[in-house]
Computed example of a mutant assay.
Amino acid sequence: MANIINAIINLVNNPINHLTEYYQGRNRANNAGDALEEYVKDMFSNTFEMAEDERLERISEVFSYLGNNSNPPDAMLKNGDAIEVKKIESFGSALALNSSYPKHTIKSKSSMISKACKEAETWTEKDIIYVIGIVDKHSNNLLHLCMVYGLDYCASEECYSRIKSTIKNGVEDIQGIEFTESKELGHINKVDPLGITYMRIRGMWGICNPLKVFDYIYKRDTTKNFSFMCLINCDKWNSFNNCQELVDLSNLVDTLQIDDVKVKNPDNPAQLINAKLITYYR
């Protein structure tokens, strides 16, 4: 079963900076965003340099679901974690999540996920990995890659759903309008006296990128062409059976490092969580 440890090992062993050039040359992507998603598939399935038919077969063995931009997540590992991929163009940029609020974990009963995702395998809840790539808008080079778990990055669902429900309930209390349920926050009909105007209400969520959120434990070396940062809480780290492979690789590769750190609990910053900080550069 593939996991985030495999992905890190494969990233170190297969250095690719020119994402668009690499994946366009194999007719797999037309832009940097698509190329980043293909790169993430290759990292988790170790399909770099494979012939396309072999690659597709291997990807189908590793992933139970590959999604689209309309519904989270972007992918799910078979019997493993969910994955959400985001491309940004600067180190200060926030992540645009649109109508989907941040995910501490992802649940099969969520109205935001597709039927295909719900039925991809037997599951009720998965941890979610946010994979953020910073791509230079001029050269399309991958400058930095970051992987963090929603567990360590986002508050629990109740934090966000409470805000959503409060806004929705407030709109419903407005007198003289017709409120309709929708996948968005709501749909208001008959706003005007003729009853011909409607209004859609939708949330547009965003979140600071992990480089800013975790700047108290990690600072990127701006002199390097490419850098990588991954944060895994110790409970999650201890659940994997292949961590020693990554430890052994870090003993061979000088620029790959694993450190013990403490990070703030997203639900209660007064509490600190033990975690592993994995960094790499080239």
Score class of each variant (00 low, 15 high):
171 V>W: 05
172 E>T: 04
174 I>C: 05
174 I>L: 13
176 G>V: 06
176 G>Y: 08
177 I>R: 03
177 I>H: 02
178 E>Q: 14
178 E>N: 15
179 F>H: 06
179 F>D: 01
180 T>V: 14
180 T>F: 12
180 T>A: 07
182 S>N: 03
182 S>F: 00
183 K>N: 15
183 K>T: 11
183 K>M: 05
183 K>S: 06
185 L>N: 06
185 L>V: 15
186 G>N: 03
186 G>Y: 07
186 G>M: 00
187 H>R: 13
187 H>K: 14
188 I>A: 00
188 I>D: 01
189 N>S: 12
190 K>G: 05
190 K>E: 15
190 K>Y: 10
192 D>S: 15
192 D>N: 15
193 P>E: 13
193 P>Y: 13
193 P>C: 07
193 P>V: 13
194 L>W: 10
194 L>C: 11
194 L>M: 12
194 L>G: 10
195 G>T: 06
195 G>K: 03
195 G>F: 09
197 T>D: 13
198 Y>T: 13
198 Y>D: 15
201 I>R: 03
202 R>G: 15
203 G>A: 15
203 G>L: 09
203 G>F: 15
204 M>K: 08
206 G>T: 08
207 I>Y: 13
207 I>N: 05
207 I>K: 14
207 I>Q: 10
208 C>M: 08
208 C>I: 00
209 N>S: 11
210 P>T: 05
210 P>Q: 03
212 K>H: 04
212 K>T: 08
212 K>E: 11
213 V>A: 03
213 V>E: 01
214 F>Q: 04
214 F>K: 04
217 I>Q: 02
217 I>L: 06
217 I>Y: 05
219 K>A: 10
220 R>L: 00
220 R>C: 02
221 D>L: 04
221 D>I: 01
222 T>V: 01
224 K>C: 07
227 S>N: 05
227 S>I: 04
227 S>C: 05
228 F>T: 00
228 F>K: 02
230 C>K: 07
231 L>E: 01
231 L>Y: 04
231 L>K: 03
232 I>A: 01
233 N>W: 03
234 C>D: 09
234 C>Y: 01
235 D>E: 11
235 D>A: 08
236 K>L: 10
236 K>M: 10
237 W>F: 11
237 W>N: 07
238 N>D: 14
238 N>Q: 09
239 S>W: 11
239 S>R: 10
239 S>I: 13
240 F>C: 12
240 F>S: 13
241 N>K: 14
241 N>I: 14
241 N>P: 06
242 N>L: 12
242 N>K: 10
242 N>F: 13
242 N>E: 14
244 Q>H: 12
244 Q>Y: 08
244 Q>C: 07
244 Q>W: 06
245 E>N: 14
245 E>D: 15
247 V>Y: 10
247 V>W: 04
247 V>D: 01
248 D>Y: 03
248 D>Q: 01
249 L>A: 06
249 L>I: 09
249 L>Q: 09
250 S>R: 10
250 S>H: 12
250 S>T: 11
252 L>H: 07
252 L>F: 08
253 V>Q: 09
253 V>G: 01
254 D>C: 14
255 T>M: 10
255 T>H: 12
256 L>T: 09
256 L>R: 11
256 L>Y: 09
256 L>A: 06
258 I>H: 06
258 I>Y: 07
258 I>Q: 06
259 D>M: 09
259 D>V: 02
259 D>S: 15
260 D>N: 14
260 D>K: 13
